[in-house]
Simulated assay, not measured.
Amino acid sequence: MKHLLILGAGFSGKAIGETFRAAGFSVSGTTRSAEKAESLRECGIEPILYDGGAISEALAADMKRATHAVQSIAPGKDGDPLFRAGTPALSTLLPELEWAGYLSTVGVYGDHKGSWVDEETALNPVSARSVERVEAENRWLGFGRASGLPVAVLRLAGIYGPGRNALRNMEEGTARRLIKKDQVFNRIRVEDIGRAALFLAERHLGGVWNITDDEPGPPQDVVAEAARLLGRPIPPDIPFETAELSPMARSFYGENKRVSNAKLKAAGFRFRFPNYRQSLAELFLSGRWRG
C-alpha cells in the first residue's frame, strides 16, 4: 500500500491526509501535542509526536515506509527541520520515497503592487518568514534534483475552509472590513489544497506550483459576502492606516499581488472552489462553515 507521511498535520496537512486516504493511501502525520494527536486519529491519520527537533524512533520507522511525504512545518530561523545539521540525509530517512511535496506560500513573491505573478516570476520576499521559506524551497528542490525524485513546491495563498472562514468570523464578531486602496489577496479553500497535492502526486509532478483560486480580490469584499449570506449588517469600513493590527497582520498588507494558477490548470487540475463566493455559498448551505 502507498503510504503518505505528513510532517506537520495541521489545517492543511489534515486536509491533504483525508484526500490521500480517500484515494487508498495509508496516512500518518506528525503533531506537537497529544490533544491534536487524538483529532488526527479520529480522521484516520496515524499520529506521531514530533516537535521539529531530533527524529524519534517512531518517526524514523514511519519514514522508512513512506512512499509519499508532505512537509508542512515552517522552517524558522534554523531552516527546515529535515535539513538541519545532524539530521540524517533524506535519502537515508526516506528510502522508499516516490514523491514529495513542500508547502510554501505565495509570500515568497513579495510585493508587486497588484500586478500578476506566476511560477516564473523572480522572488522578492519581504518578511523574514518568507525569506526562510525561499531557503527551504531551494533545499527541497535541490533534494529532488540530486535524488531524481519529483519534488513539488506548493505555494499556497490565504487558506480557509470549514471552521476557519469569514462566515465564522462574522458570527463570532471578529470580522473587520479593513480598507487599503487597491489591495487584493488570493485565497485557497483547504480541500483544494488536498486535491492539488494528490493531483501532483498521482502524476509524479515536481517543480513549483501556485495553489490559489481564480479571483484575487479586496479582502473587504469577502466580509461583505459573508454578511450577505448570513443576513447580517455589513461591518463598517476601517481605514488600514488607523487600524489596530499585529505586526504580522500588518505585514500581509505590505504585499499586493495577483497570483496566477494557470500552470496548474494547464496541467489538467480543476478547482472545486474557484472563487470565494462559490466557496462561501457551499460552506453556508452545507452548514460546514462552523467546522
Rank of each mutant, 00 (worst) to 15 (best):
F185C: 00
E191A: 14
N169Q: 05
N124Y: 00
L90K: 01
E119Y: 03
K263L: 11
G163D: 05
D237E: 13
R258L: 08
A74H: 09
E42R: 12
E215I: 02
Q278M: 08
G161C: 14
N275K: 04
A60L: 10
G79F: 13
P236N: 10
P162T: 15
G231F: 12
D237N: 13
G291E: 08
L245C: 09
G194Y: 11
T242A: 05
N124H: 05
E172M: 05
D182T: 15
E18W: 03
A22R: 12
V151Y: 09
V151R: 03
G13T: 04
L149F: 04
L229S: 08
F284H: 13
F143H: 07
N186S: 15
E42P: 01
Y109I: 03
Q278H: 14
C43W: 10
W140A: 04
S279M: 13
Y276P: 01
T19W: 03
P247C: 12
L230I: 08
N261G: 06
A146D: 06
R187V: 03
E241W: 06
F271M: 13
E46Y: 13
T105I: 05
M63C: 13
G144A: 05
I234K: 07
E119V: 02
A61V: 09
V153L: 11
V117F: 06
E98G: 12
L198D: 00
G268V: 14
G110N: 04
E137P: 01
N169P: 00
F240H: 10
E57M: 01
I211D: 02
E137A: 01
V222A: 05
E18R: 14
L5K: 01
P216W: 14
L49I: 15
G291C: 06
I211T: 02
P75H: 11
A22N: 09
P239V: 15
